[in-house]
Design a protein around this nucleic acid. Structure first.
Length: 411
RNA sequence: GCCAGGGUGGGGUAGUUGGUUAUCCUAGGGGACUGUGGAUCCUCCGACCCGGGUUCGAAUCUCGGCCCUGGCCCCA
């Protein structure tokens, strides 16, 4: 039998309905904050991603050459493409721009729990606002969105200034190495590397910073931080809004282009792959030939949210089975049309089953049976049978529709 | 790329000191049965991940591969 490619998944209707339910909750939150959806190509020139993230990521991408010999890649993430799009199409649009996306990405990695080779991200980018309010808005939006999904998570907020301030005397490559150690909480590696550079005196401050959960204390540890005022403002806004988060100044994020505020979200009930959210303030536009526009955004790992939610989401449509005797099929079709026009999912027999067999089948797949036979065809009424309770009554079609709708599951 | 555990009808399983036609539940189709047949009974459909090896004989032993699950690495 033909198998699907490693790391990909098939989604049956139950699962798709659950996914769409959560997707729409996220869309609603984004919409309410004024973030409008954009869409970029599924594949881009390879260069777009290597410019952003370095050549190293080539190993982890789906790369191919088209018939014109162009080097292309299935997108491994979406931020780079959105910023490219902003430069190509919307450079002069009034700032700030609030955009969001929901799309699939591809990475060639070893699959494990919550990690697939094709996966979906819900993300937002706030382009052209370089303020504490902008930083705070994106975090508040992220929290709002995670809350809307109903998962249990921890939100960690940090700022790169502290770490960068402590490391400012080091060479750039050494800074990168330190930040990698710190992000992983690899204190032994940190110590060794510092000692080899005769900078062991930094070690205690850096470790203290990573473990620090208090803003005032962080300022003390790292000395005068240039963005102090902006950081204070951002945190004030978050606190005033009642956002639940913890401060964490060990967050380094993998990439160069993050400039200041950074944040991450973790699901509480996942295993090794428990990060469900990552974001921050960054400058990327100049890399792609645009002005040096400040941006801020996050991407949320949709599949991990679904894994975290597990079986919690049961959204079921109310289903009506319109069952009929053979000679009343035409009238039954008409009744079904009336129900469908009212927005009710209505299904009819296609197998040529008898009335009893139709009800037997309906009992497994529907909430109500609408029985149409000689009597109903003559009177214009319908017989509505609640398949959960067995209760049955004769009603005119409009009342039957009202009964089905009031039954609840229409949302 | 590395480590561990797995793979038997659509789903869940039994069977592995090698031995007839591979067990059971469930789901699905048909019928008893053309106005309530959601029940009951009968019946049908349908599987040993793939390939090589050992053997008279392999679901079972062996080797390789593929895939799944979890973890390491990485995580833009």
């Amino acid at each position: 039998m033909l198998q699907k490619p490693r790391g990909t998944r098939d989604f049956l209707p139950d699962e798709m309905e659950a996914r769409r339910t959560i997707e729409w909750r996220m869309r609603e939150v984004a919409r309410c904050w004024g973030y409008r959806e954009v869409c970029t190509p599924e594949f881009e020139n390879l260069e777009l991603f290597t410019m952003r993230s370095g050549e190293g990521i080539v190993e982890e991408m789906y790369i191919f050459e088209d018939k014109g010999g162009r080097k292309l890649a299935l997108r491994p993430e979406i931020t780079a493409a959105v910023i490219r799009m902003f430069i190509n199409e919307a450079k002069v649009a009034p700032k700030p721009l609030r955009w969001c996306y929901f799309a699939d990405c591809f990475r060639y990695e070893r699959p494990q729990k919550g990690r697939y080779r094709q996966f979906w991200q819900f993300g937002v980018e706030l382009i052209g606002a370089d303020t504490a309010r902008a930083d705070a808005e994106v975090i508040m939006l992220a929290a709002d969105m995670l809350n809307a999904t109903g998962i249990a998570y921890d939100l960690k907020v940090g700022h790169l200034s502290f770490m960068k301030n402590l490391l400012k005397d080091l060479e750039y490559s050494a800074q990168r190495r330190m930040m990698a150690h710190l992000d992983k909480k690899d204190f032994d590696g940190l110590k060794n590397t510092l000692e080899s550079m005769n900078k062991a005196d930094l070690c205690n401050s850096l470790i203290a910073l990573v473990n620090c959960r208090d803003l005032a204390e962080a300022f003390e540890i790292s000395g005068p931080v240039p963005e102090k005022e902006r950081i204070n403002q951002t945190i004030e806004i978050l606190d005033a809004a009642g956002i639940e988060y913890s401060l964490n100044f060990g967050i380094a994020r993998g990439l160069d282009y993050y400039t200041g505020m950074v944040f991450e979200g973790f699901a509480q009930n996942l295993g090794a792959e428990n990060q469900i959210l990552g974001g921050g303030a960054y400058r990327l536009a100049h890399l792609f030939g645009g002005d040096d526009v400040a941006s801020c955004g996050f991407a949320l790992g949709f599949d991990r949210v679904m894994v975290s939610l597990g079986e919690k989401i049961h959204r079921k449509d109310t289903v009506v089975a319109v069952v009929c005797t053979n000679e009343c099929r035409n009238h039954a079709l008409e009744v079904a049309r009336i129900f469908r026009r009212a927005g009710i999912r209505s299904e009819m027999d296609l197998m040529g089953r008898g009335l009893g067999a139709q009800i037997a089948h309906a009992s497994k797949s529907a909430d109500f049976a609408v029985v149409i036979g000689q009597r109903e065809t003559e009177s214009g009424n319908v017989t509505l049978k609640n398949l959960h309770t067995g209760e049955q009554k004769t009603l005119d079609p409009e009342s039957a529709i009202a009964e089905v709708v009031s039954h609840g599951a229409r949302r």
